[in-house]
């Protein structure tokens, strides 16, 4: 497959491209309105020392809010927490999600039931699922401690125990999303490739690693990218389960607390912009570094 260079575009190709731009223009305009304006505003406000409740104290301070945030151990502790949550959830979800995708792909009977059952958690509002998990692990109302003989272990009194519960709930909730993306990838792997490999005497394991996975690399990378960006911005579970106590605060929760709770608009927006930049960085690394081609998921090839 050779990609035609720009000069070789036919008239028809050029017309199609123009049509595409025209058709997407309204969406781009709306996007700019709802994302570019708030972003620019946040950037502007992050250069001030400004409290919502002390309007007279507003002062332009250049990038000192960024220096404060980047020089604060609390910020880096939250980065670490967010990193741990992201790494663990994404890694586990890709493995389980792939297994689920295979089940959904291969299911011969009760196909619809199987798919519905697997996708169900994704249809539940995150806050509600967070409450369900919180109450399940709660000492007074929970069943987890009595079922698994954990005695009166207070899950939410320890940093790593509460992070474990947060991670578990996140995995439970979003694995279906990963498996859905991977199912789309599986559907693109030509069936005859697997058959040819079987004829050549490949085992099921070899077929999985040599045929199926390489052929759905794009789908896997897209799933990992989407989930990483999602997990990096985790908020609801933490808010509901620990409200950031015991060093379980994540980056978006830190932003929330500075901006909404403390009404420190300048400092909070600086943290928010840093969060945004980290998201951009992750996306750039994936798209440039791993050459994720978002169009491949559509099956253009």
């Amino acid at each position: 497959m050779s990609a035609p260079s720009r000069a070789e575009l036919s008239d028809r190709g050029r017309a199609e491209r123009r049509l595409g731009l025209v058709l997407s223009a309204p969406a781009v305009a709306v996007m700019l309105l709802v994302t570019a304006y708030p972003l620019a505003n946040a950037l502007y406000l992050s250069l001030f020392r400004y409290r919502l409740t002390a309007p007279d104290d507003r002062r332009f301070v250049w990038f000192s809010n960024y220096a404060t945030a980047l020089g604060d151990p609390l910020f880096w502790q939250d980065v670490l927490t967010t990193l741990v949550i992201t790494a663990v959830t994404v890694a586990v979800e890709v493995v389980i999600g792939f297994a689920f995708a295979l089940v959904m792909h291969r299911a011969v009977f009760a196909r619809r039931t199987v798919r519905t059952a697997i996708l169900l958690p994704y249809g539940i509002v995150t806050v509600i699922s967070a409450f369900a998990w919180k109450y399940a692990f709660d000492l007074q109302s929970g069943f987890v401690n009595s079922w698994f003989g954990a005695g009166d272990f207070a899950w939410f009194s320890h940093r790593w125990a509460s992070l474990l519960v947060i991670v578990l709930s996140e995995i439970w909730k979003t694995t279906p999303f990963v498996s859905l993306l991977l199912l789309a990838g599986l559907a693109q792997v030509p069936g005859d490739l697997g058959e040819a490999a079987t004829v050549d005497g490949a085992t099921a394991w070899q077929r999985l690693w040599r045929v199926t996975i390489p052929n759905m690399r794009a789908a896997i990378l897209v799933a990992v990218l989407f989930r990483t960006l999602d997990a990096w911005r985790i908020f609801d579970n933490v808010f509901v389960m620990t409200s950031g106590q015991g060093k379980t605060e994540t980056l978006s929760f830190l932003t929330y607390r500075q901006t909404i709770t403390r009404t420190a608009i300048g400092l909070g927006d600086a943290v928010g912009v840093l969060l945004f930049l980290s998201v951009v960085l992750i996306a750039a690394v994936f798209i440039r570094g791993f050459r994720v081609d978002l169009s491949q998921v559509r099956g253009d090839r």
Partner: peptide, 8 residues
Amino acid sequence: VLRDKALL
């Protein structure tokens, strides 16, 4: 904290 020199 009051001078925005630390996060809280």
